[in-house]
Amino acid sequence: MMNSIGRRRVAAFGLALTTAACGSGGTTGEGEQVSHIKRAETPKSEFNAEEIEATLDALVAELNEGALEPMQMAILLKEIGGFFTPITTGANRAMGELGVTGNVLGANGQGAVAQGEQIEQAVADGAEGIGVSPFGEATAAGINEAIDSGVPVVTLDTDANGSKRSIYVGTISASAGVTAGETLLALLPPAPGTVVIHGAGDPFWVDGMNRMQGARGVLEGAGYKIVVRPIDWSPQGELADVEAMRAQIETADPPVVGLLGLHNVSYRCAMATEAAGATELPVVAFDYEPKTVEYMRRGLIKATHAQRQYYAGYLVPYILYGIKMIGLDATRAIFAPRISDESRLNVGLDVVPWDKVDEYNTFLDSIGVTQ
């Protein structure tokens, strides 16, 4: 949580950003065209995404070589608030630095239909680029219509693989699973042993299954037996998950040597070790939920993997502006070290050890992010 000192620091950082935006590329809020993009300096931290920062600087340098133009864009998210708060912060900050005009909008709980209407409206209003966090393939038709009308679309957080979108920006699930598996592996005793994975159980949940397979491959490759507890998302799911994993801890053969949670309810793994009286087992989690942080402070979760929502939101306006000014191929070339499959830009993860919670909170405060 952000304390009062953090809020004052963020307010000062925000003022600096506003000042920078008024002297940056594109147009100001009043439509006055200016000639130079200047990114506000990100406060230094061990959690800085240095490769992303360096790549953005390279893009800005390329853009500043030419004449800059005004641009209108729209960033359309599933919702405003919660998980999407850091995305909103990043997107607004980038648009301010670029001096472009545009809005960040949520679908207001109305789903893919409302989002499709928002895409259509953005095109009608003159958007020259759209960033969207799509409701999967259900949003693909709207994305394709925008692209067919000449408006490039970048997806973020979730993808619509079947669409014509230019680039996806966010977490790559299989890669994230590998990272999580490697984090737990470093904490385990030598094989043999059983690892409990708390993750996807629905084969239609592609990202969840990809994350699961990435982690599973690392741990099975190291000689461990894997047992999976599919996440129960029902209102009674927490109790059911804890009881099921408690039973796995008590009955597994060979004995359980660690637990890995791959989604935002990963803290249930720590609850299961408490229920089984086995709090010595290492638990590794995913996302940065308040309950996860609580168990980290108690030493019952040894590390978690925080998705970089802020960077996903921050990158999209820069990519859209790059596409307009230097073209899609040139923009992709600059980001090539982080792009897989020619079109998926991996923002990576922050691996946060249990004893670095305060340092990570300080980093989040410094960039104006709460999660």
Rank of each mutant, 00 (worst) to 15 (best):
96 G>Y: 01
232 D>V: 03
304 T>G: 12
165 R>Q: 06
112 A>V: 00
140 A>G: 12
172 I>T: 08
214 G>V: 04
292 T>V: 08
75 I>L: 12
282 P>E: 10
371 Q>T: 07
341 D>I: 02
19 T>E: 11
103 N>I: 00
177 G>E: 03
152 P>H: 05
267 Y>I: 04
15 L>K: 15
120 E>F: 00
142 G>Y: 02
222 A>T: 05
159 D>Q: 11
18 T>Y: 01
15 L>Y: 13
350 D>W: 09
143 I>E: 07
238 E>S: 12
170 G>R: 01
303 A>L: 08
141 A>M: 03
318 Y>V: 00
69 E>S: 15
38 K>V: 10
261 G>V: 05
87 I>N: 01
154 V>F: 05
178 V>S: 05
99 G>A: 08
24 S>V: 05
6 G>S: 09
160 A>T: 09
254 P>W: 07
336 A>Y: 02
296 M>F: 10
296 M>L: 10
318 Y>L: 03
47 F>Q: 09
108 N>T: 00
113 V>A: 15
252 A>Y: 08
150 G>Y: 00
284 V>Y: 03
17 L>I: 10
355 D>W: 06
353 P>F: 10
143 I>C: 09
342 E>G: 11
297 R>W: 02
127 A>W: 05
288 Y>E: 10
285 A>D: 14
209 M>S: 09
214 G>M: 06
140 A>W: 04
238 E>G: 13
